[in-house]
Amino acid sequence: MTTRWLTPEEQRAWRAYMAATLLLEDALDRQLQQEAGMPHLYYSILANLSDAAEHRLRMTDLAERLKITRSRLTYAVARLEKDGLVRREGCPSDKRGSVAALTDEGVAVLERAAPGHVETVRALLFDRLTAQQVGQLEEIFLSVTQALQGDDARCAPTDVPWLRRSSTSCT
């Protein structure tokens, strides 16, 4: 089998994507640590729970949505639980499973953190793009997401809670 090396254009695009992704994630983490005292992952957990029915999700479903391991999620939820932002409950349909539930304090923290987070996302990404580029970005990442999840993708980007305005105005 012959290796299909990246063309110079593809290599530049790949490196630009990697640099932007790493820098953006670092900037989001810094902003949320400074303004809300939590990393981006914790904010994402709270945002996902805020968009779920009754502010509850099975831990396995939450891990799948976040694309993280169950052990990493368990550690993060334990920290959020210690801070009173989330509580774990037994799963009524599966005695072995557990559910993460957003507390009222978690909703309040999320509502306080959301405006600064959204402003950072806007300033670092969307304010730098034209409307046409925003559409292209969506099209590009929808295509990549569908390829990675298969043609029967359950989670198109518009179905990802933190990418749309919710009842708590969180991204």
Rank of each mutant, 00 (worst) to 15 (best):
S93Y: 03
A101D: 00
E111L: 06
E119P: 07
L110I: 05
E119A: 15
R128I: 02
E81Y: 00
L110N: 12
A114E: 09
R122S: 14
L80T: 09
T69C: 06
R122W: 10
K95E: 08
G90D: 08
L66T: 02
R96H: 00
S93G: 05
A113G: 12
E119W: 10
K95N: 01
K82E: 05
E81S: 10
A101F: 00
A100K: 01
E81H: 04
D104L: 06
V99M: 09
V99P: 07
G97L: 04
R72I: 08
A76V: 02
K67W: 07
T69D: 09
L110Y: 08
R65K: 15
I68N: 10
C91T: 03
D104E: 13
R72L: 12
G116D: 14
A114V: 11
S93R: 10
R112Y: 11
S98E: 00
G97W: 03
R70D: 13
V77R: 08
V121C: 09
V107R: 15
T120D: 01
T120L: 06
T103L: 04
E111N: 04
V118M: 08
G90M: 03
A114T: 12
T74K: 07
R112D: 15
A131C: 05
T130L: 14
E81R: 04
V107E: 09
E81N: 04
D104Y: 01
P92V: 01
L125R: 10
R70E: 15
A101R: 05
H117M: 13
V99R: 07
R70H: 15
V77P: 02
R88M: 05
L124M: 13
P92A: 02
L102H: 01
K95S: 10
S71C: 13
R72Q: 14
S93A: 09
R79A: 13
V109Y: 02
